[in-house]
Design a protein around this nucleic acid. Structure first.
Lengths: 234, 234
DNA sequence: GGAACGCTTCGGCCGCGGCCGAAGCGTTCC
DNA sequence: GGAACGCTTCGGCCGCGGCCGAAGCGTTCC
């Protein structure tokens, strides 16, 4: 009779994610940005009133957080843990019974390169992880990684400073995350986030409107080749 | 409009976990053992017919798998990925709005030591991870780890052989898993499973009936002290 | 100040899915 | 062979929760 309590707790959270409209909202927020209630309404597939109700439920359960700004209300995922749980569920979902719906160009774009909460995913994310380990910048033991000294110097030269935050310590420096499209882990944690931010800053990647998918710019193609030896596409 | 597809897939899986009876069933199976439909019925809190329906749904979605044996049907989690998703959800659930129900002795037992799928969790699991890293047997970069040579020798002397499986390679040697009660990662993957198995074999830990909780035996107390420098409890 | 906008609250409808009683089917036991 | 057991299938009930129309409230714009 022991696990009843944990069962209830599990069911509560899972049920929140188990509604299509709410799952759509959470999926949108998986790129880590904050979106307005209107934007989320649009993606959710239901009316504004209904979406508002869903946002209230998600907020109350602390899966998302809200900040007011003028007459807008911005919602974002409440924590990386929430993102991780969603990603883990998507990984399970992708194993499912051959539900490979007709794969459209949007899906292909997502598989090529996308953001996953605050870091890079898709083939680009995997290629990056492979490149860093291949050059001995990182030892990746399947589900997380340790930077080598060589790797620290490299990142520094690439414009990334990973100063140890006082409180957080080495926590979360290099987590990984199971990539649902590639079914292999990509880089998350502070390192993953820093790489992602740097690539946006350099103009190597750009967001595709209304999507988590990214385009790799011309300078991105060059840069990835030069710095990481990655040649996206083929 | 992009994420609609992934939203549906996410919602499908989450909804399966989002029913209290099904969540109870999944929680029971989190220790990695296979249980009969009757046992799961007992834990689920609903009638046998209803539980049977839930088991059918979970099976069809490939969250659990079934094997017949005589007039029994044994169910178990279908994959480590499913366990990981559940654990990630429980981690989110435990952050929740101070829903600390009256903590009973059973809950305390779970926090002390329990199995999590095929490895150890709770304070014992965390202490073990700390001990291994403290002795430089393992470099634990937050969400996974790499064994040192010293560590490999140690494990060998402790009776654990981690031969590289041909196909699986280094995959999953040392994953980690966020412990919902301690809120820090404990050891999972092949290493976590091997440590857990070894401790059962040595008679250091024993299962508490109808629970994921474990008791640490007298020889376990001694062994943990000698080999790992761990003194459980206080 | 009034209109447009962004978002939420309130009410009431409705259907999906969980529930159990009854029945059925395969296996084991003696 | 018959009874007990383990589990599932079938039917029909019922209520929770998602849904939208209407209304309301704060903010911005001119």
């Amino acid at each position: 009779m022991a696990p009843i309590v944990s069962g209830i707790a599990l069911a509560e959270i899972a049920a929140l994610m188990g509604d299509v409209a709410r799952a759509n909202i959470l999926s949108c927020l998986m790129d880590g940005r904050a979106l307005t209630a209107s934007e989320l309404t649009w993606h959710s597939g239901v009316s504004a009133q209904t979406a508002s109700g869903h946002l209230a439920k998600l907020s109350e359960a602390r899966l998302i957080s809200m900040t007011k700004q003028g007459r807008h209300r911005y919602y974002r995922l409440a924590s990386p843990e929430v993102a991780q749980a969603i990603e883990a569920l998507m990984a399970v979902a992708s194993f499912g019974p051959k539900r490979h719906r007709p794969v459209g160009p949007k899906d292909e774009a997502l598989r090529r390169a996308r953001t996953c909460y605050d870091h890079l995913a898709g083939r680009l994310g995997i290629a990056l992880a492979d490149a860093l380990t291949g050059q001995d910048y990182l030892v990746l033991s399947d589900s997380a990684g340790v930077l080598t000294e060589k790797g620290q110097r490299f990142l520094c030269s690439f414009g990334i400073g990973l100063e140890e935050g006082g409180k957080s310590g080495r926590r979360g420096l290099c987590r990984t995350c199971l990539d649902w499209s590639e079914r292999r882990p990509h880089l998350a944690g502070r390192l993953g986030a820093a790489l992602c931010t740097r690539m946006f800053d350099l103009g190597w990647v750009e967001r595709i409107k209304d999507s988590r998918a990214l385009t790799i710019t011309a300078s991105g193609q060059r840069g990835l080749k030069e710095v990481f030896g990655i040649e996206p596409q083929g």
